[in-house]
Amino acid sequence: MNGSLLAKARGVGAAKAPLAGRIMPPGFTSLLSRYGIYLFMVVFLLVAAVAAPSFFSRGNLSNLVLQIVPLAIVACGQAMVILVRGLDLSVSSVMATAAVVATSFSGHDADIPSIVLLSLAIGMCAGLVNGLLVVKRNVSPFLATLATMIVLQGLRFAWTHGAPSGLMPPLLHRIGAGTWGFIPMNLPVLLAVALPLVLVLHRTTLGRRVVITGGNPMTGRLLGYPVDAIVIGAYMLSGCLAAIAGIVLGGYAQIVDNWVGRGFELDSIVAAVLGGFALSGGRGNVAGVIAGSIVLALAGNIVLLIGLPVQFQIILKGVVIVFAAACYARR
């Protein structure tokens, strides 16, 4: 959104000059904005434990993780885009397309390499188009990715003639929905995505370049960083992660329709923002995003456990979004 819906840089009376000798370490609000999401997570876990003893049953926990993983994967990609002052609405469309691709082969495990490669290629292409529109044509990310979302949706409909019908390779279904002992089989996928991302973003020079470019693209340019490549790369990564998440989620559901991943575009934004990524770019850490995803999923889980109608899942999610953002993700 290129500083559009986002905070505006202009303002009178800029930063107040602190007097020398009175420099204070970050205050409570600043700490809250950095670590608030973990607080929320703990509170939710406590609430769940008190309200429903069945929460900590093995079955519930592994099922919960199975649901969290796809969202967390998409949200990680979304967070990278938000980090460079963008927004990616096309992730849900990429997810559904990847899921449709997964059922478009013969349904045998031997197809999995082709499925993964094709899905990643689609995700990467979508990301490339998004990135090019944003970087080269200076289109607002909201619109660029909205358009990509719609185009991809149309192509998917045309491909499936409206009603996808195919078989999910059994292994993908096991990864998406199975457990190994009590360990959900899709958890390693998240770890394989998130750990390298944490490492690269917070511990390498490349990650540092991305963070600085996100905070201020002009600074990145004057520091000789490959700014355009960084931004396009962020969109492409988001596309790839959405494709992976689509396969995992498709595997979880097993029966794939055209709307796998519907709502994930907005949920992933929420998870990233709750996790501490500023919509104005240049700040955030990956662990927070995963915590954000957990909080969103917990909200849904608690409703079921305390026996409220399923509709309260969405309602509680909405309340959590607004309440959590009001607590610590203020503009």
């Binding site: 600085i212 905070g215 240049g282 700040r283």
Partner: peptide, 17 residues
């Protein structure tokens, strides 16, 4: 502000950029 510093980041990040 517009071209020099990554404003949300800290001193360490900015001096070593």
């Amino acid at each position: 502000k517009g071209e020099g510093l990554a404003m949300l980041q800290d001193v360490a990040v900015n001096v070593t950029a």
